[in-house]
């Protein structure tokens, strides 16, 4: 995507999807009387414009899937607002909600479990058409054939059972079913994580092709930055229920501000042995979302953390047009020198 076309997207006034202060907590029971909650998503703001691909990246347990569930209406947020094309989804009428469901479609991680093992794939692709009573029966059949062409499935696969297909083909079926109702936004929750590396690229290419052809917006959830670079317009990095950095894909990859983003980028394997090793390595596990750390949630694992990080929660700092991060160290560096990148990498190596 060129610099120019992105500007056009950002000027688009009403975002297709707007998430504001989204909170999702899951109550848990400890013993007989104890209770607590898992803070899966803690105040997330997010915008996706029509035709835009936003990648949501983070480790397992960062709340990215929960966010995806809320966005597709499969889970009800504890607090916060989700607006689709300017309308609050929670306040929508029954019909409004059905409409929202039609326009936002999920694609799941594991195609083996997202396809009914007893249904021939043509029936699976047809299901949403039948549910919304789109056109006549013959039109639906024709649409199924069209969808299979669209996702690159040979038509003679139509009567096959999911188990007769490979993982990549199964995922194509799932995508075809998600596209049946001509949605405007696809929420793909790690759509390639369960697939072989060789097949991953095919599915990523398919998604890229589809968004170009159908002007489809995509919320692409991944735990691995390497798969998002090619596909996305913007990237949002999530850590323990918060978005710690968001920005255009080139900025995120060339000049990440948040040490967590930097660590994720450094974790991408490269085939160049001579490459300079200035790595931030993540150690340990993501902390429990039941008792998130004080201050900046990343500070126990952060290589550049200062005292302030453990007490005070960092606010979003704007670094560039559409690029912001929540980090004390990066913000201080920006304030002091205006130069950003050097400080961080020094901090990392020292």
């Amino acid at each position: 995507m060129t610099e120019q076309s992105r500007t056009v997207i950002e000027q688009d006034s009403v975002p297709l999807l707007e998430v504001e202060g989204l909170v999702k907590r899951f109550p848990i029971r400890r013993g007989l009387f104890g209770s607590g909650s898992v803070h899966a998503v803690e105040g997330v703001d997010l915008q996706i414009h029509a035709g835009e691909v936003l990648s949501l990246v983070g480790e397992s347990g960062s709340g990215k899937s929960t966010l995806g569930m809320c966005v597709t209406g499969m889970s009800t947020p504890t607090a916060g607002r989700i607006r689709f094309a300017g309308e609050d989804v929670a306040l929508a009428s029954r019909r409004g909600r059905a409409d929202f469901r039609r326009r936002v479609q999920p694609v799941f991680q594991d195609p083996r479990s997202s396809l009914d093992p007893r249904w021939p794939i043509e029936t699976t692709i047809r299901e949403p058409l039948d549910a919304y009573r789109v056109g006549s029966s013959a039109e639906r059949t024709a649409r199924v054939a069209e969808l299979m062409d669209l996702v690159g499935l040979p038509r003679h696969f139509a009567p096959r059972q999911p188990r007769e297909l490979s993982g990549g083909q199964q995922q194509r079926v799932a995508i075809a079913a998600a596209l049946a109702l001509r949605p405007e936004l696809l929420v793909a929750d790690e759509p390639v994580s369960a697939l072989d590396v060789s097949v991953q690229a095919q599915i990523l290419n398919l998604l890229d092709e589809l968004r170009n052809r159908l002007k489809l917006a995509l919320l692409f959830i991944a735990h691995d930055l390497s798969v998002v670079e090619h596909l996305s317009d913007r990237v949002a990095v999530m850590y323990l229920g918060r978005i710690v950095e968001t920005g255009p894909v080139e900025r995120i990859f060339s000049a990440p501000e948040h040490p967590y983003t930097r660590a994720l980028i450094d974790a991408i394997p490269h085939a160049d042995p001579g490459r300079k090793m200035s790595r931030i390595r993540l150690t340990g596990e993501i902390p429990s979302p039941v008792n998130p750390p004080s201050g900046c949630r990343f500070h126990p694992r952060c290589p550049v953390a200062v005292d302030r990080c453990s007490t005070e929660e960092p606010q979003d700092t704007q670094f560039d047009e559409g690029h912001s991060a929540a980090c004390h160290v990066a913000a201080a560096a920006l304030a002091q020198r205006g130069s950003i990148i050097s400080v961080l990498s020094e901090g990392a190596t020292s």
Binding site: T72, M74, S114, D116, A131, Y132, A180
Partner: peptide
């Protein structure tokens, strides 16, 4: 996932139970 997916694709509870 296929039950959640069917729901998201607009299938009614009755048709999900039946199908």
């Amino acid at each position: 996932a296929y039950v959640r997916g069917a729901r998201a694709r607009g299938a009614s509870h009755l048709s999900i139970v039946r199908g």
